[in-house]
Design a protein around this nucleic acid. Structure first.
Lengths: 205, 205
DNA sequence: TCAATTTTAGTACGATCGGTCAAAAAAATC
DNA sequence: GATTTTTTTGACCGATCGTACTAAAATTGA
């Protein structure tokens, strides 16, 4: 399932160019502005080229999302794997998530736009390969409970852990929206503050 | 600026019907599905009727947003005005915000959809009368600082207060997105949990 | 160098968008 | 009951959407 065809050098370059232009438009002007015509104009090519290199617009969008997932996974996994406590894991999860947003600013903004906008033809939220919010929440819930057993966190019911987990995710997602609006935001400091906030919110009394 | 014309009974009823149908569609199927054709179909009328009662689609959307703002303001203000401490104010702000979402579920979901989707023709986020996120954040920041002076909250820099304020807003906005997905959510309990989370996050060590 | 292949530009298509409008229908007024 | 006013319908407009397709251009390979 790794390489379905091996793309030529030119093909790969074109695909990257198109995706980069799409990310630029989506992150700066919003999902609705990212028509094939606008993306082609931004790239200085005919929109037929996009159809040639991507099977559909959905395919292009899908690639943008899963590309970011790949980058994010590669970036985050080693840090998370190195953690030995739930406390360290959650702090790292928050901090590295924010720092990843710093290094992939436009891409993160674009994917956030995509996820909040993309729906199927019936209006139901579209599902993206690899992106599973519920699973993320579940991992955080598990870690919160583990932190209680390890003596670092207060007692949680399943519900209270779930609310805290959702709040952590909301803080990170919300930061993405803020990023789209304000360009001058000290993300290192922001990461530190978020870690402090949720460490205090979860800690043993 | 209160009453610009005095609407007839029928006119008022039609406007409410159209707005209700628009809210229904936006909250259940998303902003993109809420074309004039779909709204008219949902209402069982011709789409010309919408144009007759609203000067434009933007006008309709604007009404939906400012209607909710009116309701929210009426609901929230007395509770907030009754608070004598910053701690009480912020706890009340969180709790009543969530409870308001409980009683105006679809409307809140719809307006959240609208605010995150509506852009002007250039792609810049559209500004809504009465809705000013920055101002909300600023009030929260002010209250956090006041809570420090009153001895209930820890020390905040301007930045750290702003991050916490933004996190509170994100938690509430994020809840709206959750509401759109899951129908069975105990909002009273959710409100209590959020109050606990942010009380712990802000409190004096 | 010349044929085969890949890539591109450009046009056209059907669908849908928000909005307009004339004429029909309904309601209000006298 | 006749006339005026309000409301509704349904067809239509120009614009834009994603996509399909053809023919030209560029590249590749022998």
């Amino acid at each position: 399932m790794k390489s379905q065809k091996k793309l030529s050098f030119i093909e790969e370059a074109r695909r990257n160019q198109i995706m980069t232009c799409a990310i630029e438009i989506i992150s700066s002007r919003g999902y609705a502005q990212a028509s094939l015509a606008q993306i082609a104009k931004e790239a200085g090519i005919s929109k037929g080229v996009i159809s040639y290199h991507f099977s559909s617009k959905d395919d292009l969008i899908e690639q943008i999302v899963s590309d970011l997932y790949e980058s994010g996974s590669t970036f985050m996994t080693p840090y998370l794997a190195a953690q030995t406590t739930a406390l360290g894991w959650i702090n790292t999860y928050i901090e590295k998530n924010v720092l990843f947003m710093k290094s992939h600013r436009k891409h993160v903004i674009a994917v956030t736009e995509i996820i909040f906008h993309a729906r199927d033809e019936e209006g139901k939220p579209r599902h993206f390969r690899n992106i599973d919010t519920d699973a993320t929440i579940n991992v955080l819930v598990k870690m919160l409970h583990r932190g209680t057993m390890e003596g670092d966190f207060r007692e949680f019911t399943d519900f209270s852990a779930r609310v805290l987990a959702a709040t952590i995710r909301s803080a990170i997602d919300g930061l993405s929206f803020q990023l789209a609006a304000s360009l001058d935001l000290d993300l290192d400091a922001y990461a530190k503050e978020l870690v402090t906030i949720f460490q205090m919110a979860a800690r043993k009394v």
